[in-house]
Amino acid sequence: AKRFRRRANFMDIIYGPLLRGADDRSGGAGGGGGGGGGDSEDEFFKPAKRGAGAGRAAKGGGGEGDLDVEESSKWFADLTLEEEAGEEAAGERGPAARCTALHDWDDPEVRRRIRNKFVTGDWSKRGEDDEEGEGEAGADGA
């Protein structure tokens, strides 16, 4: 969660590629770090294989550089737990990479963090954001 806060300038991530002027935004897009960049010189004359198999991977959101990425408003998550890896990668990459960070809902600590989003949680004003403030005594999330 802290990393999310540190990421200051969303305006630049969103509109930066536009302001840099190119209509072909394949290079500059914020989350393009991972999966993109398929159009290298080597692939000239070779049809790019993005048939049925590759399509789903691209949908995950990594490949903003892909000109032909499938479009969907849904959020695709790989349900294997990779919170740690995801959080680390998110520091370097854009919000796109962050999407794959999933939580382990069997972990009492994770459960405690979400508890106050529900009516059954803590209604006090501080309840929202007390990950550090709350002592161990109150941390019984299971």
Binding site: F4, Y15, P17, L18, G31, G61, P95, A96, R98
Partner: peptide
């Protein structure tokens, strides 16, 4: 919550 890549792209299109 967190913006999806789809949303980010839409914001760019809205501006254009």
């Amino acid at each position: 919550g967190k913006l999806s890549p789809y949303t980010v792209e839409l914001l760019r299109h809205i501006r254009q």
